[in-house]
Amino acid sequence: MAEIVLSPTSAFAGIPRGRSGQTDGPPGVIASERTDLAMATIIARKGQSAALRDTVREIYGLKLPIRPTWVGNDELAFLWSGPDQWLALATGTIGPLSPLRERVGVRAFASFEDAASETTASKALTPPFPTRGRGSPAGGFVDIETELRESIGAFAAISAQGDGRAVLRLSGPNVHDTLAKGLPIDLHESAFKPGDVAITQIAHIGVTIRQIDSSPTYEIILARSLSLSFWSWLVASSGEFGLDFT
């Protein structure tokens, strides 16, 4: 048998791109899927919280949040996901064991961390080495599990989440009106800001929501198996404003 080549299928791969709902005028909501993400859960080992935070700060230049917020950028982000628990998100389709630390090291984050108002603004970093395309024989996702085990494994349990969660970015003038139809938390700027995270549910589907910027752009992270049910809700809820899936 020929050499096996596996290509990943993203959670929303089956959804046609383009406009749905009301089609007059510009779309009220713009959605895009983030693919090629690798994820891992980080849980501080007993009594190691402080050491874990110190080490993450030292190695990645990021302060692990102790309340529902996130730090990092599109390449690597740590999202609070419970007491002493975080979700690490890293972009994929890069080599098997990448030197993440070099790519997103202290220097890259130095200014990022101090600029309080911009704590979470995305900074597109140019990867220092070529990325491999989807489906290339040795392709795959960033082995974030191994990476984190090596860097902080002494202080934390690292659990691979692979790409088991679907990730959608939502923006547009009616993003609040749409989310209000399912999300039971307050997104008003006085209550939820760029850098904030909430774990809750939309239409009975567990989600993590984080605010990316003040335009506002949000990212919704949910169980991959529920992506079609979520999509059904999103299409129904954004219909009156028009949805563009890019």
Partner: peptide
């Protein structure tokens, strides 16, 4: 204490 005030249906 971690997430803030939420509806009882989350619990």
């Amino acid at each position: 204490p971690s997430c803030g005030e939420r509806g009882h249906e989350e619990f």
